[in-house]
Write a protein that binds this DNA or RNA. Structure first.
Lengths: 397, 397
DNA sequence: TTTCTTTCATTGACAGCGGAAAATAATGGC
DNA sequence: GCCATTATTTTCCGCTGTCAATGAAAGAAA
């Protein structure tokens, strides 16, 4: 079922070419001169790197829009042609699959969600294949190829091998997801941890652009953290890193499913908040939306639940800042729906617990839609594509 | 006072040469072939890289010791000639200056300590200059040049600029220490944070050899942490990282001078242990040695003080492991004198608080002598030396 | 209109790095 | 002495990115 002819590979084989391309991806249209300065190369190198990429259609010279103010030969900005290629990103959660179709600039063209009823590998693969098929069909961009599929899964994922080592939510162990999904979809597949994928998207297209050290903290069902150090996403020696959710901020706190007490997640995770809200208010609380509603109603004690969650998150972030000294921390995730309820506590707890210069770290919030997770998966796929070597991508064999 | 003629520079101008040299530094004598494999280069590249380094005397071919067992042309191992150059490393604490003279392999040749009575910049500089002079005079290696001085200071240090931004123990702010010390000693000076310097030494010569992700945790007056991620020491966006000492492990714990409660340092730092020991036993406790003695005597409650400290350290290490996923954590520092008193608690608390794969992290202890800190400073100086470019080291000008 | 100035982009020569493969070296076994 | 075997060196060679010079496209000045 190899409908997509042979696999297309990216014609950037030198470090300079890759660097120029990623610079243009992140920093929008740029003249060759400006790109050279940003990438630390000579203008000549940029000219040479850009040519084959323009010929292959990945870059285009911008039509000269604005009347230039400056003297001299008008600049000729170059940008990535988003419409040159499409990618599919899929995020698999325990009860839902979210998929997006993005262009090469990782702009979302289409988004779809389907519920997940069966977590067996086979069933998930079938759902993913359907979703991918839908998204590809839904794109009316005739002639624009879909060049890759990214799949984001929470848990312990070995991206290089394309294997999900362990995913608690899906109850998977050692599933060679990349290989399986490649067979069912016919696309090159990249599998990565969900938070890491989101971090890649932030690094290239979001609030992490241009930073070599930053962290992404996600607040929702779990509390996750993606780290970028020395300009690279941290994967950890054993494939796991950023487990901020199980940083203990209060040894006297509630027990966590990990066996400890007072983990950030056991205080500020969705389930913890809902449970605590039930306890405090004595009412039925169906889900976190209900919990937010109760707090907004001003029910006695309800706001305190969020205050406590905010404090836990703020302490967790301070811990990250103390250890890494990131330039910025980006807070995101579905849990941000309640942001107004704990923003103050996050900031206060962070300021109190951040030591010395760590407090100079810029803490931002980005209320990213849930599709952003899937977009992260697409970003991982884009990354795989543009770093693919002709050797490893060869369809012949 | 430029007695040391013109500054010597290191003749490794290509990435391959640097890589070969550091490989040989860390991995002892190696045949060219073995070095090539380890450094990921071709044998030809190693031959080419090695030649100028042998000519300049930094590398030597080992005399063939052991009778080779194998067939074929005998291997010709190459190693760094430690006696080619000397370096001085100095660690400045609040009340003492520790200095060592090391060779190019960072082996300690001489060590000296002098008390520090006056923390004013001028006085410290004078003491450092005296100490350096002593060490240079004490070396009977006539003709072996001293090629650099490393100074390690706790606190916020900008190594690139050679400036101590803020050192609480010395009460310094924005002291251009590298420049000042270079003037008084006539040597090229590298200034770095003390824990980072120690981490460099471990990375090249200690338990971090060959690892791309590990952490060094020091236990003593303060609790510090040096991190290596992606093979590089983490400095943090604002020059501060690894502040494990102020990770809060117990919000109900004792107040810390940083303004929080239950910081690792407020429970397991020397001062905290001594204070708590006084409180618990009701006796006079002069210093941490006395506290250790009391615990060894089995005084009621004394061991619990250490147990609590061990638990705090173990939790702190687990936090580091959860966030980074290092391959190994190396515990060191003067506080290890009491290691038998809290080893068990460290391991237990780590195992309990490390989440998932983070628990696979190897936790080692290295009872490093106090001179090891100064040796770290020397390692930083060696690093500066071998990465020095002819452009920046030019004496002409 | 022509020429100059300014700035961006391109070109071609070039130095140098590191790799591949062949040649050379050094040893033990026969 | 010759061969097999392994280590090292040599000899190209491709390739990358820089340098310095040149070209191109405007507005400004004459």
């Amino acid at each position: 079922m190899r409908s997509t002819s042979r696999t297309e590979t990216f014609p950037a084989h030198t470090p300079a070419a890759s660097q120029v391309f990623t610079t243009l991806l992140s920093h929008g249209p740029l003249t060759r001169l400006a790109a050279a300065r940003r990438a630390g190369l000579s203008p000549a190198a940029v000219t040479k790197a850009v040519r084959p990429l323009i010929e292959a259609g990945y870059l285009v010279e911008d039509a000269d829009d604005e009347p230039r103010a400056a003297l001299g030969r008008p600049a000729n900005p170059v940008r990535v042609d988003g419409s040159r290629a499409l990618f599919v990103g899929v995020k698999v959660t325990g009860d839902e699959i979210i998929g997006v179709l993005t262009d090469l600039c990782c702009r979302i063209r289409l988004a779809r969600r389907v519920p997940l009823t069966d977590r067996a590998t086979r069933a998930v693969l079938a759902s993913v294949a359907d979703l991918v098929h839908d998204l590809r069909a839904g794109a009316d961009d005739i002639g624009v190829p879909v060049l890759g599929l990214g799949v984001a899964v929470s848990g312990d994922v070995d991206r290089a091998e394309g294997v999900v080592r362990y995913s608690p939510f899906l109850e998977w162990r050692d599933v060679p997801l990349a290989e399986l999904a490649a067979m069912t979809t016919g696309l090159p597949v990249t599998v990565d941890n969900d938070v890491r994928a989101l971090t890649i998207a932030e690094q290239w297209f979001g609030a992490g652009v241009g930073l070599s050290d930053f962290a992404v903290v996600t607040v929702g069902a779990g509390i996750g953290c993606g780290l970028v150090v020395h300009g690279r996403v941290v994967a950890g020696a054993h494939g796991v890193a950023g487990e901020i959710g199980h940083v203990a901020v209060d040894p006297a706190g509630p027990p966590c499913h990990c066996g400890n007490r007072g983990c950030v997640e056991a205080i500020a995770g969705d389930a913890a908040i809902v449970a605590r809200m039930r306890e405090v208010t004595g009412r039925k609380v169906a889900d976190s939306a209900a919990a937010v509603a109760l707090a907004h109603q001003g029910l006695p004690g309800a706001r305190e639940v969020y205050a406590r969650a905010g404090e836990a998150i703020g302490r967790g972030i301070a811990t990250v800042a103390n250890l890494f000294g990131p330039e910025r921390v980006i807070i995101s995730g579905e849990g941000l729906a309640a942001y107004d309820l704990f923003a103050e506590q996050i900031r206060d707890a962070f300021a109190a617990a951040a030591f010395g210069s760590a407090a100079r770290c810029d803490v931002q919030t980005r209320p990213l839609p849930f599709e952003e997770w899937a977009r992260g998966a697409a970003a991982a796929a884009i990354q795989s594509f543009i770093t693919s070597t002709p050797a490893d991508g060869s369809g012949k064999g």
